[in-house]
Design a protein around this nucleic acid. Structure first.
Lengths: 238, 238
DNA sequence: CGCACGGTTGACCTGTATCAAGCCGGGTGG
DNA sequence: CCACCCGGCTTGATACAGGTCAACCGTGCG
């Protein structure tokens, strides 16, 4: 039996607690298994979905990292988020039955494909799933509020410090180090997300390094003094 | 019978098509009426809910205008949106059962209070409502993507032009003029939303006026040349 | 091996913030 | 009824954060 044919099952997936509701009855858990239709591999730089494509499914990231980005009529684009294992992408497509952003893999990745009509069907019957879907969407709204605060009122150093702390915190929640991380995205992508130019990202990283708050070597970052970064984020900057 | 005691009924509310799903069966429509527990009046400058308060309900705006804002630990705050008749607020509270932002009335307003557990209950049975709730949340996510694009990559003129066009378009969808509008918020609130200082908002408005694109008198704004504003938004500015 | 992409750093420029002064209109109290 | 006051707004002068342009470097991929 080839690996691809192994029955996909949330019930024994080690990421379950990240992307699925907890405290399900055994019978409910079994039904959840039916949510995932297939898995799909997405290679680095390939898109999982693109702006304008019909919306059919939400995707739970199993492995790898994605960025989502929106574009305006004129060429500009904006990275709207970086997503990692256990996170759900594709929510933007629900409202008009088509995606309004691109999801691009930053490294070879794999996602669970969850057809949205199946999600709706099942969440009519499993209230914990219904609640969970609502929470996922609400969480995304709250996250974006935070990004708006960052983009609207923080200075470059504050933005980058907040970004690094957020990244390492999410990685730590997934069992990685609480101080070391590997940036899967370029300086330009970080800059797009933070509303800065790549040179500013680079300079600011260098500045943090010069002040002994982080060690940077290529895309490997070590958070030496997380409190100093926190102080920067919470400084009454302006 | 005092006005307050008139049975609240979505089924004969003229805003229904803005905040409720369309194409409901007669029986379903009747059940929707039960969603709205009460109405609530909120005077200018008062809050509908505040960061930290327990989440119980979503609110459909009947009359008036609100702003929502988030705050960081240090005093900074950021306006995350301006909401008007037919729009739904409170979605931020779902994920942690408490609100994470403040909703402040910009003028005397009235909202329909829709207890969220009742929404969840009913949307298990009325699939059009379920779909509708998902769409409302997805629409908010997409709107915030747009704001991120604006904050992350647009210049002051572009931001303000986009803001004015968005506002007048929403007002027009509600039966108001497509060219005249009354700003219900201060320059400072506009600035907070757009990531600008109030002086920049004022200067940019003056510049638009000097170039004959708009007429500004206090909070009354007349869009004289919407195409010029659109050109600014879509200019390959940077 | 070499090329191209990603990154760093420097010099300079500019858009927006900051600081400051003054205006306007509407509400309040004498 | 008028004078005053205050919040909201405008406008000018100046400062500075971050953008822009440019040169260069390292590295890893083809």
């Amino acid at each position: 039996m080839k690996p691809e044919n192994i029955k996909v099952a949330c019930s024994n997936c080690n990421l379950r607690e990240l992307c699925m509701p907890v405290g399900l009855a055994p019978g409910e858990l079994q039904r959840i298994d039916d949510l995932v239709a297939t898995r799909r591999k997405v290679k680095r730089r390939e898109t999982l979905f693109r702006n304008g494509e019909p919306f059919t499914s939400l995707y739970a990231i199993r492995t790898g990292v994605f960025k989502t980005r929106v574009a305006s009529e004129d060429g500009r684009d904006q990275v709207t988020g970086f997503q990692m294992a256990g996170e759900i992408i594709g929510l933007d497509g629900i409202v008009n039955d088509q995606h309004t952003c691109d999801a691009v893999a930053l490294e070879d990745s794999e996602v669970c494909v969850m057809p949205f009509d199946r999600i709706e069907e099942l969440s009519r019957e499993v209230t914990a799933l219904q609640r969970h879907v609502h929470q996922i969407m609400s969480r995304e709204i709250v996250r974006e509020h935070g990004v708006m605060l960052l983009l609207g009122s923080m200075r470059a150093e504050e933005r980058l410090a907040a970004f690094l702390l957020n990244l390492v915190q999410r990685l730590h929640a997934r069992g990685f180090s609480r101080s070391e991380l590997v940036l899967r995205m370029t300086r330009e992508e970080i800059g797009s997300y933070l509303g800065l130019k790549l040179e500013t990202v680079s300079r600011t990283l260098s500045k943090f390094a010069a002040e002994g708050m982080v060690e940077v070597e290529q895309r490997n970052v070590r958070i030496v003094d997380p409190d100093a970064l926190r102080r920067i984020v919470n400084s009454p900057g302006c």
